[in-house]
């Protein structure tokens, strides 16, 4: 109990100190979420919209992003307001990684095992980087049940660190998409529905982003 409280106090203190001493230009926005929720697709969309170049490779095979990827100095503008930040794309957080899942996608067993090993390191890195974020975009696949342990753990950890966050309900272009289900699952959080793939609702997303920071 005491240890837990000390840890929480330490995290809050570190977060406040970080925000005071970090220059405005060093604002870090992280993309967090479960595997295959579309974090890198969203990162690519943001980077394409404002820098004209992509950040990372996307794939239907889970755990395509296995390392932290950063795009520096992305400037978003709307109605005379602007925000410059470093965009941090993180590997998807998972509680299990089975190399057999990659084999099902046609990856050779040896490569699948290597991919699994790299993916485990990626999850650890993503969790460690939670301490370094000024804001987090929690990317959730709106076609899936949002009440998953990974989503709950991510939101709980951001709350414990007092990190501002915005839930991005992604894949609204798909028929099964249900952003209301996400709003109902996590009341008290701001939720915006977008399609990172088609670009739908991205202008509203940028307006919300500018309002948050």
């Amino acid at each position: 109990m005491v240890l837990r409280h000390l840890r929480r106090i330490k995290n809050k203190f570190a977060s406040v100190v970080r925000r005071i001493f970090r220059k405005k230009k060093d604002v870090r926005i992280g993309l967090y979420g479960p595997v295959n929720s579309g974090k890198t697709t969203l990162a690519n969309r943001i980077c394409m919209d404002w820098l004209g170049e992509e950040l990372g490779k996307v794939s239907v095979i889970p755990h395509e992003t296995r390392e932290i990827q950063i795009k520096e100095r992305v400037t978003v503008r709307d109605n005379g307001k602007s925000l410059t930040f470093n965009l941090v794309d993180t590997p998807g957080i998972a509680t299990k990684i089975d190399f057999e899942d990659f084999v099902k996608f046609g990856v050779k067993r040896k490569d699948a095992k290597q991919r699994a090993k790299e993916a485990t390191r990626g999850v650890i890195e993503a969790i460690k980087w939670l301490d370094n974020m000024d804001m987090v975009l929690v990317v959730i696949d709106s076609t899936k049940n949002p009440i998953s342990q990974v989503n709950i753990t991510i939101l709980g950890n951001l709350d414990a660190r007092n990190t501002p966050l915005l839930i991005v309900s992604n894949k609204i272009d798909l028929k099964k998409s249900d952003t209301t289900r996400i709003r109902n699952a996590f009341p008290g959080y701001e939720v915006i529905g977008v399609s990172a793939k088609t670009g739908a609702m991205m202008n509203e997303f940028y307006k919300m982003l500018l309002k948050k920071l």
């Binding site: 837990r4 650890i124 969790i127 939670l130 342990q149 709950i152 753990t153 709980g156 950890n157 709350d159």
Partner: peptide
């Protein structure tokens, strides 16, 4: 707690 969950995942 959320931090215990994160530690356990790690």
């Amino acid at each position: 707690t959320p931090s215990e969950e994160a530690d356990l995942i790690e």
